[in-house]
C-alpha cells in the first residue's frame, strides 16, 4: 500500500516536471537565430528586388544571403545598390565604406513601397 502510494506520487511528480518543462520551452522558445538559420535565397541584391516585386507575399521572414555594393552607410545599417536596406544585428558598420562589395545574411521583413526598398533586419556580415 505504502509502496504503491509512493509510486503514484513519483509518477505524478515526473509527469508534472515533463509537462512543465515542455510548456515552458514552448512559451519561451527562442527567437530565430540568423547565424544558424537555413538560407532560403542566395544571390545578387539587384536580382532580389526583381524577385520581390514579382511576388512580395512569399518573402517576409525568409533568411536571405545577398551580395551587393554598399551605396550608403548609416548608424543602423547599410543600403545595397539603392534597393536593399540591411539593418545589422549588432551595429558593426564603423569600418564599412561606400562602393565596396559585401555579402550579408539577414531576415527579410518586407517591401517598403514608400521608399521603394526591401528591408532586412538582424543582418550579419559574411564576407
Amino acid at each position: 500500500m505504502n509502496l504503491q502510494k509512493s509510486k503514484a506520487l513519483f509518477i505524478f511528480l515526473f509527469l508534472s516536471v515533463v509537462i512543465g518543462f515542455t510548456s515552458y520551452s514552448y512559451i519561451y522558445k527562442p527567437h530565430k537565430n540568423i547565424e544558424s538559420a537555413k538560407v532560403d535565397y542566395h544571390g545578387a541584391s539587384k536580382d532580389f528586388l526583381k524577385k520581390v516585386k514579382e511576388n512580395a507575399i512569399i518573402w517576409p521572414d525568409k533568411t536571405i544571403v545577398l551580395t551587393g555594393v554598399i551605396c550608403e552607410v548609416d548608424n543602423n545599417g547599410i543600403i545595397l545598390d539603392n534597393t536593399i536596406y540591411c539593418q545589422f544585428k549588432n551595429p558593426e558598420n564603423a569600418n564599412l565604406s561606400n562602393q565596396t562589395q559585401i555579402t550579408i545574411k539577414g531576415n527579410m521583413i518586407g517591401y517598403d513601397d514608400l521608399l521603394e526598398e526591401v528591408k532586412l533586419n538582424q543582418c550579419i556580415i559574411l564576407k
Partner: peptide, 29 residues
C-alpha cells in the same frame, strides 16, 4: 520596430510606413 520609414516635406506633409514583421517582442511566441 526599429525600421520604420518616414518622409516629411516643407509643407508639413508626413508619410510613414512600418513593416509589421519588423516588430520585435521579448517573447518569441
Amino acid at each position: 520596430n526599429k525600421s520604420s520609414s518616414a518622409v516629411i516635406n516643407n509643407k508639413g506633409d508626413i508619410a510613414a510606413l512600418l513593416l509589421i514583421k519588423g516588430f520585435h517582442f521579448n517573447v518569441a511566441l
